[in-house]
Amino acid sequence: MNIEKIISEANIHAVMHDPGAARLVIDLNKVMDKNAVPGLEVFPEEHSEGVNVKIILRKDTIVEKPVHLCFGVSHQTAVQKINMDVTIETGAKIDIIAHCIFPDSKDVQHIMDAVIRLGEGARYSYFEKHIHNPMGGIQVYPKARIFVGKSARFKTDFELIRGRVGIIDIDYEIECEDNSSLEMTAKVSGKADDVIKIRETGLLKGRSSRGVLNSRVAVRDFAVAHIYNKLTATAPYARGHVDCKEIIQDNASASAIPIVEVKHPKAHITHEAAIGSVDNKQLETLMARGLTEDQAVELIIDGLLA
């Protein structure tokens, strides 16, 4: 059965047999496995092209073990639409690890539409790891609208460094209330004719809200990357930082547009963007220790995406 392949690629065997670990495993539009824990409600609803998933974490529930979500497509040709509606109620806390796995894709589209709401003082961390095959043949469209309530903390890490990207087009929009914080990091490595688009917009509208947008991208061959990060602060003592680093090799190309917008005299946002080939001093240092140029470049890029 193909689902085995997905589970083994995600390396979540242990989780699959742990009654205390919440999980949801989906292959295309079929729910293959589901386990919830007290206070966490998961309602998956299958439809012709995917699954609608409603997740509610009840007030003050602390989920101890990370929750595993696995969105796979074992088929070669398919469109998978996942609609997520997530509510984390006041004071609740959850860590989610999501694997998106496409082991045999030839022409697969994965469309993720998420709405995430964090209540007052809630904590939410979401680590999304994509495991693609080496042939490409995949288009990924993750889209999310996120609302971070007062004093809540939202953190997301997105990683696509194994296999071919194909096309990825990330679009996240996020709003932060008083004293809340947001931290988004995306790490993507592209090769051949991969196309990477990242669009992240954060609005720090709450007093003393905090936001950091990080992007780390490496592209080679003919791959292209476009990063658009925008952070707006409209409230006093809001603080933010936009940080984008891209390493390009061969005929690859990259652009970065960090936009910082400050609409309150007591808010402060900084940005940093560096695009270029591998840093020469780093390269020469490693070569002076005996690594070949290729080995040195690999180590430096592994570090960037670590």
């Binding site: 680093k245 780093q282 240092t285 220790r289 690594l291 080995q295 180590l299 570090g303 960037l304 995406l305």
Partner: peptide, 16 residues
């Protein structure tokens, strides 16, 4: 000396 983002001291030493 150069600085290397994301490379641990262990990996840096081991590499060479």
């Amino acid at each position: 000396p150069a600085r290397f983002e994301g490379i641990s001291v262990r990996d840096f030493l081991r590499a060479t």
